[in-house]
Design a protein around this nucleic acid. Sequence first.
DNA 1: ATGGTTTTTACTGCGTC
DNA 2: GACGCGGTAAAAACCAT
Length: 326
Amino acid sequence: MSEARPRTIDEQTRVATHETESDQERTQNACPECGGALHTDEEHGETVCEECGLVVEENSIDHGPEWRAFNPQEKDEKSRVGAPTTKLMHDKGLSSVIDWQDKDAYGNALSSKQRQKMQRLRTWDERFRTRDHKERNLKQALGEIERMGSALGLAENVRETASVIYRRALEEDLLPGRSIEGVASAAIYAAARQAGTPRRIDRVVNASRIDEMEFKRTYRYIVRELGLEIEPADPESYVGRFASELDLSDEAERRARELLETGKDQLVHVGKSPVGLAAAAVYAAPLLCNETITQAEVSEVTDISEVTIRNRYQELLDAAEQPRPA
DNA sequence: ATGGTTTTTACTGCGTC
DNA sequence: GACGCGGTAAAAACCAT
């Protein structure tokens, strides 16, 4: 009956990605990333996704240069550590080593000279502690990012951005209360999105050892606190995939994109699911081209309810009617 | 926890092939 | 009569507060 489709963050946040759909099982003839149709190039012996251009090796085991992990830039980044920054978090560990009380071992008050000395000691002790702690943390996280990045077949520059994101999170003390793994995977996911090669959430979650709930929470948190600008997915990025799955004519596909363009001009898309918009366009376009298509079909391949398709495509058509609105 | 928004589910009537 | 379509109401899912 109703398959309990896990909703992705994107659908709700309107910060959408290429995935979200039920493209779970079609790994054979579809692009693992965007689900687009694959085109096999015999000459070069590689398989390329027609939609997103991703090159998929026939037996997609080894995704290239995972082994040359760090380039000079990343190495450089790695060796740097965040500034000492706030002391909010570490005073506990500190006070257990150097007592905060200005007393000596017998409980006698210290001289003012001694107090100053102790104060300096505390300061430095804390600096080293936070440094060590963060460095360790970072090291482990970078390892995770590398690992997940490889597992997800992400390009090196994506892993770099991911590590930068993670570093920022670390420097802003966003880590306490979150798992390294969670933040790392959130960074990976965000980086992949920013690089325009998004990975499906469930894949990211799979590559890590956290559950989806935690991932979502963490991802949201990171994006918010870091003010990361993740653009909502362009609905157009879906039409290619949908179009080929629905065997639309080129003409229809072109019209679908047109509809989305005009729709975007009229801000039809704000607050709405990009996938829903794309589905609506993919439904409306063939009709305009006198091709037959049913809402049920579109709903089937897009995983968007017919009701939503109806609502959206009316809006799209309205937007197309009046090129110059209020 | 609560409220607000979007999407989905379920059900309806209407027209057409 | 089945099918596709449009509309509605209730509910679920989600986010933000």
